[in-house]
Nucleic acid binder design. Structure first.
Lengths: 124, 124
DNA sequence: GTTATACTTAGTCTATTAGCTAACTGTCAA
DNA sequence: TTGACAGTTAGCTAATAGACTAAGTATAAC
């Protein structure tokens, strides 16, 4: 039951659900892109993602200085499908999808520079 | 997303999950039986059940002074099946099932009398 | 009616959790 | 090898949530 509870708790947060919803669309997101999406500090985003990873909802992949997240392939199909259905057509998440398009149009390098206060992303 | 979050939060508690697991076996439980199962005060059990009802996980039926709870018939089938699979064969819940057998062997009247401190349940 | 009683609501306390800043770790580039 | 930097961890604060007791509501028995 602990595993189940851990998964439910990991999903019981608006920001974490937003990330999961984004990963249904994006397949893979860099940590700095998640910071941008949620508009929280890197530390906060890192904690959220740590919870999702430990619960087995998402998995991470490290590439140099960057960490990429995607939905965990071993996630139960029934849970996966329920979530997908629930998060589809949520008006509130529409704004996230638009924002996400802008975010992924920047390379992570540019995005990270932007987060340091430098204006550099060509599409903005 | 609020409804989804509400359901996830309602399920993100050990005691509430125990009740849901019990309702997979029992089909219907009286409030006093839930008090007995969780070993909490009536007020605490009532608050837990209120959350589950409001989230659409369980539904309640009032019969005189008693309130009976069952899994909400409109609960999403995918969520239902995931939960059922997750809660099946959980060693920790085996003790609950044994306890539950004893609990339902008492009529609610007897159980409530017992909760007032009188020893009366014939099977105990 | 009046009283007992099954459950709910209100108020309080404590524990958990989301957010922040600051310090730390590991990787890349000069 | 030194500095810059992406991400994590630690420590703090404020808000949320679970537990209790006590008071309130509604139903049944006398």
């Amino acid at each position: 039951m602990n595993k189940t509870l851990e998964q439910l708790k990991a999903l019981s947060d608006r920001n974490r659900l937003r990330v999961v919803a984004a990963l249904f669309h994006m397949d893979e997101l860099c940590a700095c892109q998640i910071v941008e999406l949620l508009e929280v500090t890197g530390a906060t985003a890192s904690r959220h993602m740590g919870l999702l990873v430990r619960a087995g909802i998402v998995e991470s992949r490290k590439e140099g200085r960057w960490v990429y997240y995607r939905l965990d392939a071993s996630l139960d199909a029934r849970l996966f499908q329920w979530l997908e259905a629930e998060l589809k057509n949520v008006a509130e998440l529409e704004a996230d999808r638009i924002l996400l398009k802008e975010i992924v149009s920047c390379a992570p390098e540019d995005l990270c520079r932007k987060q340091r206060g430098e204006e550099c992303c060509p599409n903005k």
